[in-house]
Write a protein that binds this DNA or RNA. Structure first.
Lengths: 126, 126
DNA sequence: ATACAATGTAGAGTAAACTCTATGTCAAGA
DNA sequence: TCTTGACATAGAGTTTACTCTACATTGTAT
């Protein structure tokens, strides 16, 4: 299937402006039809979904751009791309560990509030 | 203990400019000495460490500011503060779940690269 | 034929969270 | 006394990632 920028925007949940911005930044390079309109493919869809994951895991546009450039070069960059992803996985693991620690502390804090609220509600009322 | 802004900066890992910015935004309000210098306390330290957790879990400054305001009001806002944290815990749970899903996909991608690299290295060499 | 909606480009504007600069004060050491 | 270093304020500048505006072009329904 091929998609206009409007359709692709709905499909991906990214705004039309954002898609053009991503193209400007070299993250994605859709085909063009005879009228110079962008034609996004299913391959573009898979690719943009992956970009969304990278973004959501905290990879900055600059780095995604570098990855995209390697990707466009083809096979000779397979290893370097894998290395990037391995490094990113490491960062992701650390991020998850940090968040889980934050969650513990947040739970403690909430427990503290529960007790404190109970205490305050009791004091002076009995 | 009391700390100058310089010491507090080293203690927290936040830049001096950032500390002043946080104060300007109402996140923290250290005492002042006779010379108008900021005097951070251990309570400020505990508080800023919590702020750092909120930030690291994606809470925007605006929201932290709101929390700080409630905190400054004291007991009457205990419940509202707890509610905020409960909501934030929910968001955090979702964030962790998303990241874990991303991690799975990233692992698949890395596996794919491993195989692809092996394939490319084999082809034409034997 | 014409109006309208979607698309194109180029470039300006926005929001968040810092980060830095200019300028001034003040206590302490050489 | 002079200088140095840490601190003060006010406000400008930076970075990232969009998001929007202005204006031109084109395919389609009336």
């Amino acid at each position: 299937m091929e998609y206009s920028i409007g359709d692709f925007s709905k499909l991906t949940g990214l705004g039309i402006h954002t898609l053009r911005y991503y193209e400007h930044e070299g993250l994605i390079t859709p085909e063009r039809n005879s009228n110079n309109r962008r034609c996004y493919s299913d391959k573009d869809l898979t690719w943009i979904e992956f970009i969304k994951r990278l973004k959501d895991t905290g990879m900055p546009i600059k780095e995604i751009k570098h990855y995209a450039k390697l990707r466009a070069t083809g096979n000779p960059t397979l290893f370097e791309r894998m290395e990037m992803l391995v490094q990113h996985r490491q960062a992701l693991d650390e991020q998850i560990a940090r968040l889980q620690d934050h969650k513990l502390k947040l739970n403690e804090k909430i427990e503290f509030y529960k007790k404190e609220i109970a205490r305050v509600n009791t004091r002076g009322t009995g």
